[in-house]
Design a protein around this nucleic acid. Sequence first.
DNA 1: CTATAAAAACTTGTATACAAGTTTGGTGTG
DNA 2: CACACCAAACTTGTATACAAGTTTTTATAG
Lengths: 222, 222
Amino acid sequence: MKKDQTTSSQPIFNYLHEQIISMQIQPGQKLSENSLAKQFNISRTPVREAIARLVQLGLVEVKIKSGTFVSKLSVKNITEAQFIRQALEVAIVQRVAKAQPTNTIEKCEQIIALQAQAAGQNHVLEFQYLDDQFHQSLASFTQFDRAGQIIQFEKAHLDRVRNLGLKEIGNQYDRVLNQHNAILSAIKNKNADLATQAMTQHTQEILLILNDIQKNHLDFFE
Amino acid sequence: MKKDQTTSSQPIFNYLHEQIISMQIQPGQKLSENSLAKQFNISRTPVREAIARLVQLGLVEVKIKSGTFVSKLSVKNITEAQFIRQALEVAIVQRVAKAQPTNTIEKCEQIIALQAQAAGQNHVLEFQYLDDQFHQSLASFTQFDRAGQIIQFEKAHLDRVRNLGLKEIGNQYDRVLNQHNAILSAIKNKNADLATQAMTQHTQEILLILNDIQKNHLDFFE
DNA sequence: CTATAAAAACTTGTATACAAGTTTGGTGTG
DNA sequence: CACACCAAACTTGTATACAAGTTTTTATAG
């Protein structure tokens, strides 16, 4: 009566996904199904499943009978991911603003408070984690799991850029905090239009640094 | 110097996808990797790849070591697909309305004209095809292929409902035509808000018939 | 030393064999 | 007839072998 439901491809998918968005596996780098299989002590079959999913997400490209490569960054792909994310986040925040669910609002307030703490202690990873939590709290109100999933998957493309920019540009804690506060404030005021505006501005932040980052890392872009 | 790039899993993916959204393979029906492999004269490997993609799209569910089943319809999934589609279509039409690209507008006018013809001749499939073309024309203006892809994949869930409703409710040519005209008119008037409103109403049509269809086909719903 | 060609090593795509769990059908017993 | 139990047939997950094309390396000729 074992209901396993977990496959061997899930861990390797999670590993590769995390390594790619954290830029520890660099854009353009070659992956080997055989090496990965040996590394994880499994056969090529589940490795190929994991890679197939990453291909669907646009994070990996397979050149037939030649090799598997981590996708390079491209302004087009990143702009597109931002567009999709913005469309969904805006639609979500509009629903939240109209419903003003107490639970969600309180959760967001708590997260913002924690973010202020993390900012004060310069805890970058914690701050980023809380950023995700803020957006996921809003998304979870809609109970639309798939929408949240798509956002997460698209955000992978944006996170690669953000993590690349961390080293040189640094985390702009105050900007993000102000924007989160603006979004929450608009929600509380039941002002869907203002919430839309605030969320739009927030999700477009990445575009402001994109050109600079491309200039500084031309080898990572296609 | 053969650049094949096509895999044997693509045809079977296309086949299953088409059969599922056209409801020729019914919700809840069992699929067999072995049967499909024999049917297409290939091995289980590419069949499994195709099925894995369908699982990602929510059209198929795999019960481990027990069977593969076409997903049943569910109000939650359908509502969610509608939400995602609406968010993206609205974001797209807003861009089009602000830019007013001549090519796109002319294309849409042509499509609407063809739709009027198809409606007059009661050509259901042609009318539906042109409906898709209308939306894809708007999407292609943004040059965001992935956004269009996501819309198409989410629309699969909506098409199942729509095709189910065709038999009893029938195609409401005039409603759709009026809505397409309203969208295009708002675009021409550079009125993004009106375009948003028109697109929202258009994409929400499916929700109006959802309850009735569920009542008439309880066995297809989970 | 350079250039070219052949061969060896890798690469992914596919077929197939096996493992392990689930479902189904039948058989025997009460 | 009803029910429990066992076996056979199916199911998906995984490992592995092979096919076919690409890349790299090596050796040989000039």
